[in-house]
Amino acid sequence: MNWISNYVRPRINSIFSRREVPENLWTKCDECGTMLFHRELAENLNVCTNCGHHMAITPRARFTALFDGGIFTEVAVPEPIADPLGFRDGKKYTDRLKEARRTTEEREAMLVAEGEMGRTRIVAAGQDFSFMAGSMGMYVGNAIIAAAERAVERRCPLVLFSAAGGARMQEGILSLMQMPRTTVAVQMLKEANLPYIVVLTHPTTGGVTASYAMLGDVQIAEPGALICFAGPRVIEQTIREKLPEGFQRAEYLLDHGMLDRVTPRGQLRDELISIVRMLLKEPPAVMGDLPAPATLESPASTALHEGEAAAEGAEAPAPSGSGETAPAGDKG
């Protein structure tokens, strides 16, 4: 036996040819403890394939699954003052914002987008709990107002996905003022006779629950979502009584008339399409995965849509041998 060739050389080769294995290939389910492969988990929209537990999902990933072909256009949100109170506790507020933006790769705690869902144009707004617990600050207020204004401009429904720990303490009273501001934004939709649908995800708490998250024409929740103003632990400490099993969870609220539906994430898109088209008094849409729309029309092109359709209907065949058509008005 040649000790150098049979042991030393293979050992050296294994050390220098070792490949780095990413640490995030597997995710452990918080509910059942099952180890889930990251690709399978992403394909199942971050829902455990073993027990059905709904894990957190980013608004961008949610919108990719929601809109036809995963195509959507972000709606611009006005930027508020970065640190109006000059707040500092253990760390500067501006430093906390930088850290949240670095870890989430998002600008703020809410993403607003527009696109087609089941060939029905909608505006959607989604909160990101991983960005400072999805807390409601001035940016979130601006985002909801921008979403409502775009929905009124386009004459389309607004679908909002809530996920928040409440108001953002670093902005003080300015954060609490977003409660009436967003309520006014919702009222704009109601006055325009446009549907406003809220999907409450885990968790939705505090001032968010006390404002725009509970004002929908239709209230839907994901299974097991915690929905409350004050949490169960705070209530138990206050009243010194044991709360019922599942208190303030989506299923409990559905049984007590505070929700219209509790829908698993995988079925949510088709249900939203049915509800939206029903509220718009439109015929049922074709369900399932649809390809991306050819174009996302701008407001100007939407206004000219009927005129363009009429022009296309009046087109005449081009001379023989040509693959193009010539408009009837250009015959000379």
Rank of each mutant, 00 (worst) to 15 (best):
G313Y: 08
N142Y: 02
I273T: 08
V47L: 08
T104I: 03
R88M: 10
A151L: 09
L268I: 11
V199D: 08
F72T: 07
G323C: 04
G69F: 02
E315Y: 08
I12V: 14
P232V: 06
G134Y: 00
E153N: 10
T73G: 13
Q237Y: 00
S135L: 10
A82R: 14
L158R: 05
L111K: 04
V123R: 10
T49E: 07
E251Q: 09
T103E: 13
A192C: 10
S320A: 15
I144G: 08
R11C: 08
D289C: 07
S135D: 05
G126M: 04
R62T: 08
D89E: 15
A328H: 05
R269M: 10
G332E: 06
G52H: 04
E245M: 06
V112S: 06
Y212H: 13
L272E: 09
N44W: 01
L304I: 03
A294W: 00
G231Q: 12
I173N: 07
A109W: 02
A143L: 07
Y196S: 03
L25M: 12
H38P: 07
L253P: 13
R39H: 05
R233H: 08
I15Y: 05
C32H: 09
T103I: 12
L158G: 04
Y139P: 06
F229H: 13
F16E: 11
L189F: 06
R102N: 10
L176W: 02
P22L: 03
E306H: 14
P293L: 03
E153H: 07
P84T: 03
E20R: 14
L111D: 03
S5A: 01
Q237A: 13
R150V: 04
K331V: 01
R121G: 11
R168E: 11
G231C: 11
L36A: 07
G332P: 09
A294R: 09
T27K: 15
G323H: 01
D217G: 09
V184G: 06
E40W: 01
F129V: 05
S274A: 14
E153F: 01
I273P: 14
E114P: 08
G323T: 03
M188Y: 03
V140K: 05
A147Q: 09
A303D: 15
E31T: 10
Q170M: 04
V47H: 07
V159L: 08
R265E: 13
E31F: 11
T103D: 11
